[in-house]
């Protein structure tokens, strides 16, 4: 039984598993994952814009008059069906003095918010690789006879 199980767990089964996963992912990603109604498109756009009058909320979350006005504008634009989601966001953002986009741009000073995390992550992973290499070079420490005596003594003292 156990030998049959271990045979089952060999590479061909893993290959079959990967194929199954790949096929399923392919099937799943072929479907349309966008908003299915105009209302859902309005909701999706409103999640990308900040409420102009409230504290750190999006138009989607906020119920303030300022957000209601933007929501109505989005509804109008979606009903017209001329502009894409991105164009609607840009158009509304341009019509306000403040920056309403909830996602910072990737240019100028704002680009730092995108670059810094990636740089930090790369540095951390790089650091980890260097440390692992050093560890591999140095190898593990082996307890010396002095260490053994120290441990025995400490145990005896504790007991």
């Amino acid at each position: 039984m156990s030998s049959r199980l271990s045979k089952l767990k060999r590479w061909p089964s893993w290959f079959l598993m990967l194929v199954c996963a790949g096929v399923l992912m392919f099937l799943g990603t072929q479907r349309d994952s966008g908003p299915s109604t105009a209302q859902e498109r309005i909701e999706a756009i409103s999640q990308r814009l900040a409420c102009p009058t409230c504290d750190g909320e999006s138009v989607y979350e906020s119920r303030s008059p300022g957000s209601q006005a933007i929501r109505q504008e989005i509804t109008r634009q979606v009903a017209d069906g001329v502009l894409t989601d991105g164009q609607i966001v840009r158009m509304i953002d341009d019509s306000y003095a403040a920056d309403l986009k909830l996602i910072p741009s990737a240019t100028g000073f704002d680009a730092l918010i995108w670059v810094l995390p990636v740089a930090a992550f790369v540095a951390a992973v790089g650091g980890l690789i260097i440390v692992f290499r050093r560890w591999r070079r140095e190898g593990s420490l082996v307890a010396t006879q002095e260490d053994q005596i120290l441990v025995t003594q400490a145990r005896q003292d504790k007991d």
Partner: peptide, 13 residues
């Protein structure tokens, strides 16, 4: 502090 403008970083980011 640096640019003297208002920016909101929200859910999409």
């Amino acid at each position: 502090a640096v640019d003297n403008r208002r920016l909101v970083v929200g859910q999409p980011f």
